[in-house]
Structures are given as structure tokens and as C-alpha cells.
Nucleic acid binder design. Structure first.
Lengths: 109, 109
DNA sequence: AACATATATATGAATAATCGAATATGCTAA
DNA sequence: TTAGCATATTCGATTATTCATATATATGTT
């Protein structure tokens, strides 16, 4: 596999590598939502969510549609959702170790 | 979905978010390899590859087995390979845009 | 024991990601 | 036009990643 493709994949994973961006994709699982709706559901700062949406847009993981005042986002390809589902399976398969890792992470704060 | 799970997923994707680590996982797709074999196949610095192996180990994406002088690595759970396969499918589905993004990435150097 | 080989780790410098605050843009309504 | 709402962008400080260099550890060999 050429190195350019590896770099592209890495950039893609990088785009998924943030809890807020995962949360956004979960919200979009069942269809499109306006930016405002996402912000409200996540209960986070408008600018912050908008920055994360920009990252997802930049990698074409989500697409947007303007409707008057608002911008509606959706996941471009359901394969993305499949990836997240596989991850959930993975998480359940290794639940105890995953929890240990999380505790470890907590301890380091 | 609890925030802990989102953080876990994010950490996982973060671990995949580097071209060298993707390359390592590709090498391990067909079974275990010694650290030295991976280093040789990638043609990179020993210390650098070892650092990346440490990242993958830290997230339990790979496991290792010591045999005398050497350390053999393998992918812990075939689900990981499934994720990579899904990603490949994704890239093929969006190949032309992916290539455009790559050109973009190149231009920024 | 001394030495070689395989692998891991520590350190520091360069680069990139993140967040909040402030500001900008674009659309709609009056 | 002005005002107001929805969303995006810029800026700067903080924190995290990455790489190369140097060093450490562990095993094997003589």
C-alpha cells in the first residue's frame, strides 16, 4: 500500500479521535440534524462544537446542507456508522480491560 | 452512550491515527512478526518503530510474546482487522475524493 | 566474565491539537 | 437599513504527539 494512502487513512482516524466528534457522529446516526440541535444535545459551547464539525467536514466524514438560517449535517457514508458499531462490539468484547484502562486514565488527572 | 465509552473509542482511533502505526498493523495482518522483522520491512529507525509499537501496546491493539532474544507482535483481536477492512472499503467507495484530498495534502508541504 | 544482538525507554526540541473568548459572516425579519 | 439569530472563523495559551539521539535492559554467545 502506498504511503500516501496510509497517510490518508491516518488523517481519517485522527478525525475520529476525539470524544466530542464521536458524540457528534452518534447524534447523526439516525439522520441529519442542524448544528444548533447538535450543540443543544451535547450541551457544549457553540464555538467548540463548530470547530469539531469543521474537522469532520474537512475529512468529508460529514456533509452539510444549508437551509436558510441553519446548517444541517449528516454522515456522508453509513460505513462510518458501521465502523463505530464494530468499535462497540470490540469494546464489549474487552470490557474489563477497557474499564481498567479508563480507570488508569482517570488516575492520571 | 456514556462518555467513558466515547473516550475509549477516541483513544482507540487516536492509536490508529499515524501512518507508521497503520503500516505496522498491515504487516501484522497475516500473523505475528518480530519487532526486528517489522522494522526491517518498514525500513525505519529502530527506536521510532519501537515507540509506535508502544502506543499500540498501550491501547492493547497488539500483544507481544517474548521468545528468547526477540519479541513477537500480533494483532490482539481480529475485529481490528475488520475495522481496517471496512476502512479500505470506505476508501475505495470514495477514491476520487480521497485522491483529491491527497493532492491537497501534498500541496500544503 | 565480556561482548554482541534485540528491543525498550528517557530526554528534549519541533510540531500539531485543543479550548475559550472574541469576532466575523450570512440569512431573515421588521 | 438595522437588528437579531445561527453558524463559522480567528487568535492565543495550553497541552499532547512526534522524532531523533542517546542510553538502558535483557538475552544469548564466547
Amino acid at each position: 500500500m502506498p504511503d500516501t494512502l496510509r497517510r490518508f487513512k491516518a488523517e481519517f482516524f485522527q478525525a475520529l479521535a476525539h470524544p466530542t466528534r464521536i458524540a457528534i457522529l452518534e447524534q447523526l446516526r439516525d439522520g441529519e440534524l442542524s448544528a444548533g440541535a447538535i450543540i443543544e444535545k451535547l450541551g457544549m459551547e457553540q464555538a467548540n462544537v463548530s470547530q469539531h464539525l469543521a474537522v469532520l467536514r474537512g475529512k468529508q466524514i460529514v456533509v452539510n446542507r444549508k437551509a436558510g438560517n441553519q446548517v444541517f449535517y449528516s454522515v456522508r457514508d453509513p460505513l462510518i456508522i458501521e465502523v463505530l458499531d464494530l468499535m462497540r462490539k470490540y469494546f464489549h468484547a474487552h470490557l474489563s480491560e477497557a474499564l481498567a484502562m479508563l480507570e488508569e486514565m482517570e488516575a492520571h488527572r
